[in-house]
């Protein structure tokens, strides 16, 4: 019987995961179960990982979101949740971080493209979410303002592109 559970959310390319997985398994050792949450289209491709004990399918297409969390993982308790990110800071992965708020865990980490593992608190995710909400409102407003100009320009270019 293994001592704990580590959930890895596959939020990066398989090729980057190839590189990060050995770092994760080195840090958390062999005494835990590794579960990998991944989109349906990549299930076959992640079967190659020997250290993954269980693959959980994320059936929805597109970005991870809180409305499509598989029931199976909602019930589980995870000792650690790991989010691999494809940059240094984790910018652009807030949707995955927000998803972890609805999962049962006390330890959320990101692992960046250099292989650095950093803990992130639920409080920090909530603060980021608050700012995200503000940015979203501003972005909607600015998008509505910009749209007529963008489409007008695109229309002119489409009509006259041969010239």
């Amino acid at each position: 019987m293994k001592k704990g559970k580590v959930l890895i959310i596959r939020s990066v390319s398989i090729q980057l995961l190839d590189k990060l997985l050995p770092i994760i398994t080195k840090k958390f050792g062999n005494s835990v179960d590794y579960l990998l949450l991944t989109h349906s289209h990549s299930v076959k491709r992640v079967k190659k990982y020997r250290n993954i004990d269980k693959i959980i399918e994320y059936k929805k297409k597109g970005d991870f979101n809180i409305f499509s969390i598989p029931k199976e993982i909602k019930k589980m308790f995870f000792d650690y949740i790991l989010i691999p990110v494809s940059n240094f800071s984790g910018a652009g992965f807030l949707n995955v971080l927000i998803m972890t708020l609805l999962l049962r865990t006390k330890n959320i980490y990101i692992i960046n493209s250099k292989g650095e593992i950093k803990k992130i608190s639920k409080g920090k995710i909530l603060i980021k979410s608050f700012f995200s909400f503000i940015y979203a409102i501003i972005s909607v407003f600015l998008t509505i303002l910009l749209l007529p100009f963008v489409f007008m320009f695109l229309f002119v270019n489409l009509v006259f592109y041969r010239e």
Binding site: A91, Y135, I138, T143
Partner: peptide, 11 residues
């Protein structure tokens, strides 16, 4: 367009 504006603000 929305994503470009949003992520410009976020990052």
């Amino acid at each position: 367009i929305y994503l470009c504006i949003y992520f410009s603000l976020e990052q």
